[in-house]
C-alpha cells in the first residue's frame, strides 16, 4: 500500500517536473535599451567599460596643452595593444575617442595604419584613365601626422570559487612624431567584482 502511494506520489512529482521543464521556456522578449545604460551582465569587458574609458580619456586629452593650444594638431591613431586575455577590440575604444575629439573641433586625424591600404587604393584608382585628370586627386599631397596616439590595455583577474574580480587599466599617450616627446599620457582604470 505504502509502495503504491509512494510510487504514485513520485510519478506525480515527475509529471509536474516534466511539465515545468517543458513549460518553462517562455518566449524571450526583445526590446530596445539605452545604449548608454550601465551594463553589468557579466564581468567581461563590456559596453559601459568601453564608453567610460573612452569618455574619460577624451576629457583628459582635451586638457592637454598641445590640444588646448588651438593649433589643430594632426594625429594618427596607432594600435592600442591588448595585453589582456580577453578579446577586446581596442579599435572600438580608439574610434570612440577619435570621433569625440574630432567633434570637439580641436584635433584633426590623418589616415591611420589600418586604413592606409584603402586610402592608397582610392588614390591610385583616380589616376586611371577613367577619371578626369584635372579633377582627380593628386598623388603626393597627403598630410602626415604630427602626433601619434598609442597605448595599451591590461587587466588583472583574480578568481575564487565565489568571487571574480577584474581590474582593467587603459594607458594612452600622445607623442610628437618629430621630436619623440610624449606630450600627454593618462591611465584610466575600472574595477569590477562579481559574486556568485
Amino acid at each position: 500500500m505504502t509502495t503504491f502511494k509512494r510510487l504514485s506520489g513520485l510519478a506525480t512529482l515527475a509529471v509536474v517536473a516534466l511539465a515545468l521543464t517543458l513549460g518553462g521556456c517562455a518566449k524571450p522578449k526583445t526590446r530596445y535599451g539605452d545604449p548608454g545604460a550601465v551594463e553589468t551582465v557579466t564581468n567581461q569587458f563590456g559596453s559601459t567599460d568601453l564608453q567610460r574609458l573612452a569618455e574619460e580619456m577624451t576629457q583628459s586629452m582635451l586638457q592637454a596643452p598641445v590640444i588646448q593650444s588651438g593649433n589643430l594638431p594632426i594625429v594618427t591613431v596607432q594600435e592600442v595593444r591588448n595585453k589582456t586575455s580577453e578579446y577586446i577590440d581596442t579599435r572600438a575604444i580608439t574610434n570612440r575617442i577619435r570621433s569625440s575629439l574630432q567633434k570637439s573641433g580641436r584635433v584633426r586625424f590623418a589616415v591611420d595604419n589600418a586604413d592606409m591600404q584603402k586610402q592608397i587604393e582610392e588614390l591610385k584608382r583616380q589616376q586611371s584613365q577613367y577619371y578626369d585628370q584635372e579633377k582627380a586627386v593628386q598623388q603626393g599631397r597627403m598630410v602626415g601626422a604630427g602626433y601619434r596616439l598609442s597605448g595599451e590595455i591590461t587587466s588583472i583577474v583574480k578568481e575564487t570559487e565565489d568571487v571574480k574580480d577584474v581590474y582593467y587599466q587603459l594607458f594612452l599617450s600622445l607623442t610628437n612624431i618629430q621630436t619623440g616627446i610624449e606630450e600627454w599620457s593618462d591611465t584610466k582604470d575600472i574595477r569590477k567584482t562579481t559574486e556568485r
Binding site: 594600435e79 592600442v80 591588448n82 595585453k83 580577453e86 578579446y87 577586446i88 577590440d89 581596442t90 590595455i153
Partner: peptide, 10 residues
C-alpha cells in the same frame, strides 16, 4: 585581418 588587439588574446 590586421587586428592586432584581437589577435594577441587569441
Amino acid at each position: 585581418l590586421g587586428e592586432e588587439s584581437l589577435a594577441a588574446p587569441g
